[in-house]
Write a protein that binds this DNA or RNA. Structure first.
Length: 731
RNA sequence: CCGGAUGUGGCGUAAUUGGUAGCCGCGCCAGACUUAGGAUCUGGUGCCGUGAGGCGUGGGGGUUCGAGUCCCUCCAUCCGGACCA
């Protein structure tokens, strides 16, 4: 093998490789985008149109890791929905490839199918309009129709294709293939319901067994082959795998897995197919036509990419006169005339955002290390990221790429673990509550929300600062924007202008942004912080509602009053705390610690509230108790905790204080108040020694005066005693 | 259409292993102190009922001595993916 051949062979296997491929080109951004950077056919950033274009680009072979990325999901503690999004994105499907020889031409069409068992039902083949064989097999008579269709399809982006999905459009190519098992002619169509990027870009159409094929066949009047028992295909396709096959030669009477295997075996025997697992996951385009990005340590020699040696790293970005593409559409770095050793052209593309985000967390372990990402010692000490808090919007981008890179680095022996993030929590979003006014069509008159049904109206945003309790300050509204200066209002019978509302993401364009500044001004940052924790579970999204913030503020004030009066008189003493206060303390320590460990931050605040209420009632001012309270409080109200901590005489910050430990002796009461239920209905409580065994408890209950009353003279059939929980009498 | 999550008082929520449903807070009601209160304190507050009592965790069914929690089924809401062959 010569150098040239070796180079191209390696490119077909390298993890990062140069290839001519169809990429998502965004003209407005002047760069290519990865699949996950496109939402609904437009760029995620800016919402610009994206077109398909063939370009020579660097890609990373993430598809080679499909199976491992899929299996790894079972090893990590992530929210189920994110795992599911990744599973869908990887899109594993088990099926078979089958080869159909072309009639009259050299060559074959390869199709991927998950239902090889339905192969005797094939009535035609459909190619994606972009399929490479289309132009060479189309007959003279069909040429103009096919070309026209291909051109139309190219103009449509993916979104348009989906919108018109009801119409199963397509064109006959005039060519035929040979069915590998029957030897019969099968017409070849093109249709844009077949995607070039999935499978082989070609399908074997079985109208009796696939709804899309059925729709297409109906639309084009193609004869169907009936292959399912008691199914005439007059209404729809039969998609169940458990219906026995007919008209299928050696598969007759079989179904499911058995039929699947028999069909694949037959194809294998004549070398026209085999079992295959297909993944939806595509390789990720790794170059961007931007200035700001990591440069590639790559130069070109005789048109072949070469790596710059380790000793010459890092490569730094060259200076350019403008951070824009060149006139002939080259990336910004081309402006620099950048050369390696003054001789070889450097790679002008830069890496995408997901390059850095795939490994930055590793660097945190050892940020100054000049030899490696991080030292072995640091990696072994810190290990995986224990808890990753982030949003679900990165599920198919960053979160998948980080896993991919970590696997590579693990394979190469650079990191000692194969998954980057052991546990993940998706924090919910705090949403805004937008307010709306209703303008009567073609006027400048606004109607109150409760009367809007009587008019044809247009819904417009009103800034929430002008709205109080859904009532609009009409004077402020008129002054808000020039076009509203002479606005008129139709008020309801109470003389109010009511606004409509909707809960949605906070955004300037929706005029529903509430900054915490005012609340911090009024209540302080500690109150705001506690309140945010108190609102509910972290994972939950909810509208920002400040109604309850007073309650949290009162809690902190009550807490402060355990230490000093509102007038500033210091109350803390060195006396020994009584048992009750200590019980409150140690139960609180236990619950707060447990709740912290399960990330239940809202219940931590609630637990601290309960404790403060109890100590207030107990008139507890002992340093012994209150000191520990401050440590528990410090993550939630750091300023207050720190101030009181120093007033207790500490010289060092509370943030480094030892976390208190719950003493078991204080956690349990001597007496347990058993709920006594009859047939599952709780009737009364009975106080008994907490350590009493089940038998003694039963005796105590049966001897209780109220028991006889609720038995109503009947004999108990069964008495269930669960120590320190419940007593249930069945009668 | 497919997948995931969620459904508990007037509201935000709690109930960690199947064991007293509604903790904590908001709101509301009553009272105290006040010239005054968007301050503070006390008591009450799931629903129906004067009461005894009954009902109650989206609906229906099941398992169990016992179900908010487990199983089946239906409904609703939110999120995500969607011509994936």
């Amino acid at each position: 093998m010569n150098e040239d051949q070796r180079y191209h062979l390696l490119m077909a296997f390298r993890l990062t490789y140069l290839a001519d491929s169809m990429v998502n080109w965004c003209p407005a951004l002047g760069t290519v985008l990865a699949n996950d950077e496109i939402k609904d056919g437009v760029s995620e950033r800016g919402g610009h149109p994206v077109v398909q274009k063939k370009m020579r680009q660097w890609s990373m072979r993430i598809s080679a890791f499909s199976e491992r990325l899929l299996l790894g999901l079972d090893q990590i503690d992530w929210p189920e929905n994110i795992k599911e999004i990744q599973r869908n994105w990887i899109g594993k499907s088990e099926g078979a490839t089958a080869f159909f020889d072309l009639d009259q031409y050299e060559g074959q069409i390869e199709v991927f199918t998950t239902r090889p068992d339905t192969i005797f039902g094939v009535s035609y083949l459909t190619l994606a309009p972009e399929h490479p064989l289309v132009s060479s097999i189309t007959t003279a008579e069909q040429k103009s129709a096919v070309e026209q269709y291909v051109q139309q399809a190219a103009l449509k982006n993916e979104r348009d294709r989906q919108v018109q999905s009801k119409e199963m459009t397509g064109v006959f190519t005039g060519a035929y293939a040979i069915h590998p098992l029957t030897g019969k002619q099968v017409p070849i169509y093109i249709g844009d319901y077949v995607l070039a990027g999935y499978g082989t870009g070609a399908v074997m159409a079985v109208p009796a067994g696939d709804q899309r094929d059925w729709d297409f066949a109906k639309h084009h009047n193609i004869a169907m082959v009936l292959i399912f028992e008691n199914h005439d295909a007059s209404e729809s396709a039969c998609t169940s795998k458990e219906v026995p096959l007919v008209n299928s030669d050696f598969l007759d009477g079989l179904c499911g897995k058995t039929a699947f295997n028999a069909a694949v075996e037959a194809l294998e025997k004549i070398e026209h197919g085999n079992k295959k697992v297909n993944y939806r996951l595509r390789d990720a385009v790794f170059s961007r036509q931007r200035y700001w990005g990591e440069p590639f340590p790559v130069y070109f020699k005789d048109g072949k990419a070469q790596m710059i040696g380790d000793q010459e790293l890092p490569v730094t970005l060259p200076d350019v006169d403008k951070y824009l593409p060149t006139e002939d559409g080259e990336p910004p770095l081309a402006r620099s005339q950048w050369k390696y050793q003054n001789e070889f052209v450097m790679e002008y593309n830069t890496m995408p955002g997901w390059a850095g985000s795939s490994w930055y967390f590793l660097r945190y372990m050892d940020p100054k290390n000049a030899q490696a990402i991080a030292s072995k010692e640091a990696m072994n000490y810190w290990g995986q990221v224990d808890l990753y808090m982030g949003g679900a919007e990165h599920a198919t981008g960053h979160l998948l790429y980080s896993r991919f890179w970590t696997m590579i680095l693990n394979d190469l022996g650079h990191v000692p673990f194969g998954e980057p993030f052991q546990k993940m929590i998706n924090q919910g979003m705090i949403l805004g509550r937008s307010s709306f006014v209703y303008r009567i069509k073609d006027t400048n008159t606004f109607v109150s929300a409760d009367l809007r049904k009587e008019y044809q109206t247009q819904r417009l945003y009103a800034d929430i600062s002008m709205v109080d309790n859904d009532q609009l300050d009409t004077a402020a509204f008129k002054n808000w924007l020039p076009e509203y200066n002479n606005a008129e209002f139709i008020l309801n019978e109470k003389g109010q202008y009511l606004c409509g509302f909707e809960v949605e993401k906070m955004s300037k364009s929706k005029f529903n942004v509430q900054t915490p500044d005012e609340l911090i001004e009024k209540f302080g940052a500690d109150t705001l912080r506690c309140y945010e924790m108190f609102l509910g579970p972290v994972e939950q999204s909810k509208p920002w509602d400040t109604k309850g913030i007073n309650g949290v503020h009162n809690f902190l004030r009550r807490l402060n009053r355990l230490f000093q009066t509102d007038e500033g008189q210091w109350l803390v003493n060195q006396d020994a705390a009584d048992k009750k206060s200590l019980q409150t303390l140690h139960r609180t320590i236990k619950k707060v610690t447990d709740d912290l460990n399960r990330h239940s931050w809202n219940t931590v605040v609630s637990t601290l509230m309960i404790a403060v209420n109890e100590w207030t009632e107990q008139k507890c001012h002992q340093q012994e108790v209150l000191e520990s309270l401050l440590v528990l409080l410090s993550p939630y109200a750091p300023h207050l905790a720190e101030e009181l901590w120093s007033k207790l005489g500490h010289k060092e910050t509370v943030t480094i204080a030892q976390w208190p430990e719950a003493i078991a002796a204080f956690l349990e009461d001597d007496v347990f108040s058993y709920p006594v239920s009859f047939n599952g209905k709780t009737r009364f409580n009975i106080d008994l020694d907490a350590n009493m065994d089940a038998k003694t408890v039963e005796e105590a209950v049966m001897g209780h005066e109220k028991t006889a009353h609720y038995l109503e003279g009947k004999a108990p059939k069964k008495v269930i005693v669960v120590p320190k929980r419940i007593i249930n009498i069945v009668c």
